[in-house]
Design a protein around this nucleic acid. Sequence first.
DNA 1: ACTGTTGGTCAACGCTTGTTGGCACCAACG
DNA 2: CGTTGGTGCCAACAAGCGTTGACCAACAGT
Lengths: 201, 201
Amino acid sequence: MSESASATSLSDPGAASRPRRSDATRTAILTAARERFAADGYERATIRAIAGDARIDPSMVMRYYGSKEGLFAAACAFDLRLPDLGSTPPEAVGRTLVSHFLDVWEENEVLTALLRVGVTNAAGAERMQGIVKEQLLPVVRQACPDQREAPARAALVASQILGMALTRYVLRFPYAAALSREAIVDWLAPTVQRYLTADKP
Amino acid sequence: MSESASATSLSDPGAASRPRRSDATRTAILTAARERFAADGYERATIRAIAGDARIDPSMVMRYYGSKEGLFAAACAFDLRLPDLGSTPPEAVGRTLVSHFLDVWEENEVLTALLRVGVTNAAGAERMQGIVKEQLLPVVRQACPDQREAPARAALVASQILGMALTRYVLRFPYAAALSREAIVDWLAPTVQRYLTADKP
DNA sequence: ACTGTTGGTCAACGCTTGTTGGCACCAACG
DNA sequence: CGTTGGTGCCAACAAGCGTTGACCAACAGT
């Protein structure tokens, strides 16, 4: 498990073990796994298909990641890299957040994989929930007036952002996919801004 | 249930066939299928498990619905029964719509099944898209100022409503599940109202 | 009462899945 | 040199999947 962290290079805090001969294979597996999970979800992303994409034998996946669940856990470790809302003007937090989410969603297929898997897989749903709780919630706390309302406000923000991601990147509704990036930011920013800072209606 | 009537009338429009001896079994299969699809998604909702819930043999499912895909199509035919926005005051369309969606989502597991399946199954995604296009879009047309903007506005409304359904009923985030029905309506209604009627930002 | 249709069970098929253990290779180290 | 341990492929396993066809039981029409 700690080996996978070094392989992802997404999060490698200290513990730099010297490179192994199999590192190329490990990252190839991880890359292929992310693609398959993002495209097909948990059940249909078979180990055989992932191994085929990575041009290695399925048994290698088991050797390096233990099981399919272990592979998913290693492939979907993720850091949102949310900006610090304390240092952005209070009236711009909505726009900043929406824009950042669009960036991270389009540069990286891990979130798509996470969402697609989380809908039918308990481990995926828990991981997604963990991201909201440990990465989004603290940022919401910085921006909202009453700390006790932070969980509800975070839930509202998550509902709008995940909803747009769902319709645009997962279900791929034509109307949602046709929206320009600027239009999405212009429409969603006031919504998120209100969820974060407005008085309870 | 009355669902047997709707099921038969779908496959047999006009000519009302007299009740068959197997109608009880047919509806038992459909009910079990909806529950399993809603709880597990397409792949993990196996025909054997559905047949087990309905206390019949898996081969009956094949006999009556042809294949797993046919069963899903029969189980997830759905009418949103959206209200006529032409006869509601223009400033209340957001609240009306959000409230109606919460009603329909909680009284019926078909939408949960549809969303869970649509994320990993092309047929499910298309069916969901069809519902948005054929049932939500016409209603949005009634409420929005410029007809040409209707598709974009429908996409925005769908993103917020499906996002709340996703986090609350599918992923079951504790923060989203903890929101009261009234709080959701109060927070989401202005958002939907704005997506429907506000000028382009 | 006989017959044809319908409702239902059972056992099996071919296939795919995650997972395992054995065997060959290659590099390093004594 | 030989040994050792990491790297990779291969074949196979048991289990589960959707699907099929044979076969029996109960009803309906004549």
